[in-house]
Design a protein around this nucleic acid. Structure first.
Lengths: 205, 205
DNA sequence: GAGCATTGTCCACTTACTTGACAAAAGAGT
DNA sequence: ACTCTTTTGTCAAGTAAGTGGACAATGCTC
């Protein structure tokens, strides 16, 4: 099921620790200030590291933001993956549960809140939308994989479409919520329900 | 209650990671071989680090073993501390629960098993007994602190005695179990029950 | 007692991180 | 439009951390 927690050599763990320390530092700063007000120097200092090290690890401010958003996305995808796994017997339920989980935790997530609520985060917002190709592709890929793993009868092309559409919807509602998260989740899943049920039953819409 | 999880600068976290990686590597090796069969070089390699780095971080094999045992002890003390916290209203129950928890988890602990069961671990065994002064003192101190925090009426001298005696008993039973862990825990706690109850009631035996 | 492995130490070497400096770009204030 | 300031991104020189190879000393074993 999960990958074996094999022993990690120090050098690898240390690099990972460095990157995470820097990303964590940025997240922490975001709780008190806008992204635009946070300099690369601030992040380096908050991580207890020189600015040069930050630049060596992530090439530029842009790139750093990209990775920051991506890391948060991966953790969301982990949660979604787990939620889907709880409802393998009922695709509609799985969809509703996953969407619900995503929206509610997105509403509470510090980074997302910084992007959605505050004003000084246009640069980060773009990474979810206009500049968001890597993110959407990655998320759609993972979602597609989850769907295929859970319901093998579905054709790959259909799973890919479903993954792409769901990711885009999820991002849209995360960026601009419309009422209660659970209500949105229920509504969206009811909309997709006939499609996915036909899909898992017949392997084609 | 617990210490604030304040932000850790990278350099500190990295050193901690290095030490833990090395200690973890040793624990891992212990699952398949005796302590006497494990060389410092083995540990370094298993941690993905040079032998020199191992020696720089821990001065000698002896010292390394000391820290290895100490780290495991701290984690046991954490668990015991937590168990006591669950039964603040009833000292006798707290004692029984803590002792029970300690003995059962000690029986399953890989490092402890390596020391108690295998033959090639005399050097480690000594760290619990004849060479065990630092360990006993540290454990007794923490236990004393827990007791005082939980039942402030007790006099410091009495708490210190209790802490010391309990630690020594715990180590003895861990090194040489006598029947079922829970039975031992119940027996020992019944033995101390009158003493501790008088203590917490009257503040003196 | 000869041979072999391990411990603990030394030193030269590489790699990671730091420090201070700088041009270029972006804003803020006048 | 123009300066003053700040930040970004890059460089070079310096320090610290980890590597790799060598060594005497100890201890084992055959």
């Amino acid at each position: 099921m999960s990958t074996t927690p094999q022993r990690v050599p120090y050098s690898v763990a240390a690099r990972e620790l460095l990157r995470n320390t820097l990303l964590d530092a940025a997240c922490h700063e975001l709780q008190s200030r806008h992204w635009a007000d946070i300099t690369m120097a601030d992040i380096a200092v908050a991580a207890g590291v020189s600015r040069q090290t930050l630049y060596k690890e992530f090439g530029s401010r842009e790139e750093f933001a990209q990775v920051l958003v991506m890391r948060e996305a991966e953790s969301f995808l982990d949660a979604v993956e787990h939620a889907v796994g709880q409802h393998l017997s009922d695709p509609a339920k799985a969809l509703a549960a996953a969407f619900d989980l995503f929206l509610t935790s997105a509403a509470e997530n510090p980074l997302l809140r910084a992007i959605v609520i505050e004003e000084g985060a246009e640069e980060l917002l773009a990474l979810l939308t206009t500049q968001g190709k890597p993110l959407v592709e990655r998320a759609a890929d993972r979602l597609t994989a989850v769907v295929i793993a859970g319901w093998p009868l579905i054709r790959r092309r259909d799973a890919e479409l479903l993954g792409d559409v769901l990711v885009r919807l999820a991002i849209s509602y995360a960026a601009l919520p419309d009422g209660e998260a659970s209500a949105t989740a229920a509504a969206v899943s009811s909309l997709f329900q006939p499609y996915v049920e036909k899909l898992v039953r017949e392997g084609t819409p």
